[in-house]
Computed example of a mutant assay.
Amino acid sequence: MNKILTTDRRRFCQMGLAAAGLATTTGLLGQNGFADQPSGDGDKPWLRKTLKIGMIKLKDGSLEDKFRLAKEAGFEGVELNAPTVNVEEANAASKATGLIIDGTVGKYHWQTRHTDPDPAVRKEAMKLLKKGIENTAAVGGRTMLLVPGHGKDGTDQEVYDRAVAAIEEALPLAERNLVSIVIENVWNDFCYDHEGGNDQTADRLAKFVDEFRSIWVGVQFDIGNHWKYGDPAEWIHTLGRRIHKLDIKGFSRAEGKFTKITEGDINWPSVEKALHDIKFTGWLAAEVSGGGLERLKEINDHLEESLHCSKSISSVG
């Protein structure tokens, strides 16, 4: 029997069993695949607000103090940095404050890249990715954000193949730990043309995710990152159920720079409609300049102003 067909069939069966198990025993699968939203709970907000741990600025404060500050500012979750999570401290802080650790961000992937030409560097990157997945699971997180590589590391094909190989190697561990590897669309010369125009599509990113034929690989779609290169609403329609989670920031095409969420020229009504069209519900992570309580409250307000996060699931379904 053809080896590729055998592998595909095995992966297909694994996916089916995993999806069935999740849907019936844990309730993790939402409309978009990994909404982490209780099924049928129509009164809950359609978007759950989270933020990056580095945005919480608190001089001399403990992790619990930071969690408490984010909670007071109106956030439901937080993303920690992997693979350097202090698991015991993080779990204690979450339990004490009620702030959910919904996922992590791989903080090594710019310096130690999975597409580096040096096999030794790629090997080290794999160790960090696997440790990050284990960190994420240990604190109850469901996603680990990954920038899979950089276009400067070789030809387009070399970079693509190395990125695929890395995720393929880590995927079994992610599946066992119920952690989704989520690819962020960033300015890394990968799956888009960095010197190209503003009419680019998400087709190449969708193809990359589809390489893995797994519910455990998806996209943490950053709404602001590619407004310079394409329409985020169109990207959302193309990526569809591949989107497991959202990042949000502002960007001004007119000025060519990132902005506060509500101060750029992104068409937020079109983005919101696109998300409703693909039936997305789940986590929305702020990724902007942070600060103390007042700044975090401002960010929380901007999330509400841009995408009306608190509307109920039933009202947008």
Rank of each mutant, 00 (worst) to 15 (best):
D153P: 00
E298N: 05
K49V: 15
E195G: 07
S214K: 10
A92N: 13
D118F: 02
T25N: 05
D210L: 03
L307E: 08
K279H: 09
K297C: 11
M126E: 12
E64Y: 01
L171K: 05
V159F: 02
D199M: 04
D231C: 06
K131N: 07
F75L: 14
F280T: 08
K273F: 00
D153I: 00
S310E: 10
A23Y: 03
N185Q: 11
R10Y: 08
D210A: 11
D153N: 04
K66A: 01
I167A: 09
R11P: 03
F208P: 09
R295H: 00
V288Y: 08
L296K: 10
G74S: 08
N198Y: 06
K59P: 04
D156T: 03
E304Y: 03
H237I: 08
I133P: 14
L17N: 11
T26A: 09
S270M: 01
C13G: 09
T259A: 06
D161V: 05
D277T: 03
I167L: 15
N185V: 05
A70P: 12
D118R: 01
A174N: 15
L171Y: 06
L239G: 06
F75D: 14
A93Y: 08
G149N: 01
M144K: 02
W227I: 04
E263P: 08
G103T: 10
K130G: 01
T84P: 01
G40A: 03
K249N: 06
E134Y: 12
E175P: 09
L303V: 15
N267S: 06
N2R: 08
R11W: 09
G149P: 00
V121I: 13
I236D: 04
A286D: 09
E169M: 07
P45I: 07
D156H: 11
A96S: 12
I215E: 08
K52Y: 14
I248C: 03
K207H: 08
E211H: 14
K66V: 00
R9M: 12
W235C: 15
N267E: 06
L22C: 10
R204W: 13
E169T: 07
G98D: 04
F280L: 03
V316R: 00
G61N: 00
K127G: 13
G224W: 05
G282Q: 12
G54D: 02
I183L: 12
F258C: 10
L171H: 06
G250V: 04
V316L: 00
R9S: 06
E298G: 09
T112N: 04
S315T: 05
E88K: 14
D189M: 07
D247Y: 03
P117V: 04
T155L: 08
K297M: 08
R213H: 13
H194I: 10
L128K: 14
D203Y: 11
L69K: 05
N198Q: 11
Q14D: 12
E168T: 13
D277Y: 00
R142L: 05
D8G: 05
L17Q: 15
E287I: 02
T104N: 02
M15D: 14
R213I: 10
I223M: 13
K52M: 15
D153M: 01
I313F: 02
G264P: 15
K131V: 09
L178T: 05
K49L: 15
N198M: 04
V87N: 10
L129F: 11
A202W: 03
H150F: 13
I243Q: 11
I278P: 02
D199N: 13
A90G: 04
D210W: 07
R48H: 15
E175V: 13
K95D: 07
